[in-house]
Amino acid sequence: MLVGNRVILVTGAARGIGQATAVFLAASGAQVIIHGRSEESMDETVRLIQSAEGLEPLRVAYDVRDEAGMKLAFKQIKKIFGRLDGLVNNAGIMTEGLMGMVKTTHIQEMLDVNVTSVILHMQLSSRLMLKNKQGSIVNVSSIIGTRGSEGSAAYAASKAAVIGATLSASKEWAGKGVRVNAVAPGFIETDLTAHYMENKKEKLLETIKMNRFGHVEEVASVISFLLSDMSSYITGQVIGVDGGMVI
């Protein structure tokens, strides 16, 4: 996969797509830094990386809304590895609510976690990447950000914003050796989607041409491709990983 020895930070690596990505990268020889809200939340990810015989990951724990905590983590990364080659901006939250029923606090929280933290992580990562004129950033958006979905206006807005930030950053840094892309997963079976009722899942399946839900590993492999040299001429792209979903 050509990510061997790359130093890569994966946010939201305690579960779901972030966890699968961290394990995939570590199994491919990357030095992974895993992020979660607490040290303990990442125990399972560490265990999976060890099972895959990956390099021992560094854990960094902070709330992505805590700018000071984020900066401390980057200082630690800089001190230990002296560089950062890749960033996966995966940490995110999803709260649903019809247009007339979305609380301002929920909108703000989603923008803080899903948008502001993504931009700040790119900002801090760029300090370590631009110096070496090398780096790849992958932001995790969603098909809901590209297509919209009933009952998800705030979430959709936050994920659409991730795409805007991705495209802008890619233009700023394209000439400086840093690539920025996004993935837009469709319906992937994770903790975020586990609460969906069975009847809702059945209706959703009808919208997916491949007639099945996606697996976290299928998103992880695309993210890893975008981090690797196999995608060295790709920047400013949003790759759908959705099995042909139409919403």
Binding site: K75, K79, L124, S126, R127, L130, K131
Partner: peptide, 21 residues
């Protein structure tokens, strides 16, 4: 503006800090 970011990275590096935005 391009050199400015290189300057910031170099200051961070040499003085072992991380400048606030």
């Amino acid at each position: 503006s391009v050199a400015h970011m290189a300057l910031v990275a170099e200051i961070d590096d040499q003085f072992d800090i991380m400048l606030d935005t």
